[in-house]
Computed example of a mutant assay.
Amino acid sequence: MAVDLGEFDHPAWLTAAGTGIGYALILAVLTLALFIVPWLVFSVL
Rank of each mutant, 00 (worst) to 15 (best):
V37E: 00
P38I: 11
H10T: 06
Y23E: 07
A17Q: 15
I21K: 05
G20Y: 12
H10A: 13
S43E: 02
V41E: 05
M1P: 01
L32A: 12
G6N: 14
F8D: 04
P11C: 07
P38D: 07
G20R: 08
G6W: 10
D4T: 09
H10V: 05
L5H: 07
A17P: 10
V29L: 13
L14C: 09
E7G: 12
I36Y: 11
P11R: 13
G22F: 04
I21S: 07
S43A: 09
A28D: 12
F8H: 11
I21H: 12
L5T: 02
T19F: 14
L25S: 10
W13F: 15
V41C: 02
I36A: 10
A12L: 15
T19L: 14
A24R: 05
P38W: 12
W39R: 10
L25G: 13
W39V: 03
E7S: 14
F42Y: 03
Y23C: 12
L30M: 09
M1F: 14
V41T: 05
L5Y: 15
L34W: 05
D9R: 08
W13L: 08
L14R: 11
V37Q: 00
L45W: 07
V44G: 01
A16L: 14
A2E: 12
F8K: 01
A24L: 08
W39F: 11
I36F: 13
F8I: 05
V29E: 06
P11G: 06
I21T: 12
Y23F: 14
G20C: 11
G6M: 08
W13H: 15
L40Q: 05
W39A: 09
G18M: 03
F42W: 06
F8N: 03
I36L: 15
L14V: 11
L25E: 11
W13V: 11
L5M: 02
G18V: 01
E7C: 03
A16S: 08
I36G: 03
P11T: 07
V41Y: 12
A12D: 14
A12F: 15
L34K: 02
G22H: 04
D4I: 04
T15E: 10
H10L: 09
D4Q: 10
G22V: 06
A12Q: 15
V44E: 07
L27M: 07
L34E: 01
A28Q: 12
L30A: 07
L32P: 00
A16I: 06
L34F: 04
G6H: 14
A24C: 05
T15H: 05
L5G: 00
I36P: 00
Y23I: 15
L32C: 11
A2G: 02
L40R: 10
L40P: 00
A16P: 02
G6E: 13
T19Y: 09
I21E: 02
V44M: 03
V37C: 00
E7Y: 06
G20P: 09
P38R: 08
G20D: 06
L25R: 11
D9E: 11
A33E: 01
